[in-house]
Amino acid sequence: MTDLVINPTQSRPWGKILLRALLFALLGLFALFYLMPLFVMVTTSLKSLEEIRTGSLIAFPREITFEAWRTAWSGACTGIQCEGLRPYFWNSVVLAIPAVLISTVVGALNGYVIAQWRFRGANLIFSLLLFGCFIPFQVVLLPMARMLGLMGLAGTIPGLIFVHVIYGIGFTTLFFRNYYVTIPQELVKAAKVDGAGFFRIFWSIFLPLSLPIIVVTVIWQFTQIWNDFLFGVSFSQAGTQPVTVALNNIVNSTTGVKEYNVDMAAAIIAALPTLLVYVVAGKYFIRGLTAGSVKG
């Protein structure tokens, strides 16, 4: 958009400067509002319990201690077990990597077919997939629990991977379909004339063009799966829980003294992977968010 603000090289009446100051004051205040919880989490995690009880919420730690971090990682209790977040963090890693990869590959192939190899009924299938993105998962929770039981996957990590792949396909297909639909169909036609087949065309023409959408999809899926709680809490059991479920158990475990510093350290640990992705690849993260909401 063009500038609504008067060119700064022109004369600067006091009113304009005041308005500008007000603008930055507002922007700064909002920045504080968004940063405050992160700041409180970090400082609280570095304080001793004694200091937390006597000090103020937003005070810097007088004495920095990493004791809470050590406890959160390897000693905090989730119910009866006291092994910290570590095993559950790895559960989430082991769960997220295959689930992200499989759903992305399936989405890429689906999107490729729907956008470039149209056949009768392909649009109907796409609409059905799209609709599936919007259902509240509560409506599939009960039958899925039974199905996982029948498949012998109840309470296992492969079971959770399966669930995340199934309910991730809608979005990954949507992402790739919307990306491939902008590639002219003449490309496929020309390649077919040259004798290239379905997979050959995908592999040597479409895949090399797909890096941006692959990054967007992988980030989207990773964030969704890492941050998932509903599936994790419904379909896991002690030992196979993902990190979000373990974090909630640590925070809400009622045994012993409430260790707020451990809670905060655990929350930061659980948030680190997705925060890292956001800081490193924020542009793609935002593109995924907006692509997921503004269809077409």
Binding site: Y34, N227, M264, A267, V277, Y278
Partner: peptide, 15 residues
């Protein structure tokens, strides 16, 4: 302004 969107709701709730 946007980083909270990268967090799990469980983390947000805990904080």
């Amino acid at each position: 302004y946007l980083y909270p969107m990268a967090l799990s709701m469980i983390v947000t709730g805990t904080a």
